[in-house]
Amino acid sequence: MNLFIDIASWFFFSLGGLVLIVGALGMVRLPDFWSRIHAAGMIDTIGAEFMLVGMMLQSGLTLTTLKLLLIGLFIFIAGPTATHAIANAAWSAGEKPQGLARDDSARFAEGEKA
């Protein structure tokens, strides 16, 4: 049983670590701000949560696991809120992406006025 938990924890750690590194690589590699937001999204979701699940498996059913669960829940809710706040601030400041394949922003502005 102990071995099984160790293997599961190892699985979550390695997968989480991989996603964290790929996300961080995306932060460096991707060409502009608007695409880098999505790399940051990878770090905030799978990367962080899988690491936390790996740690939860290490400590079993204790108060420590409950604390980790709280951290995970907070990151789950506050992470995208912060990302949206950054994207919205950049949008309001007039940060426009280059080479859009499709752009509905004018239609959106019109729909809000109506």
């Binding site: 701000f33 880098r36 770090i43 990302t83 601030a89 400041a93």
Partner: peptide, 9 residues
């Protein structure tokens, strides 16, 4: 905004 995003991550 790149910097703020990076610091948040």
């Amino acid at each position: 905004y790149d910097r703020i995003l990076a610091v948040n991550s």
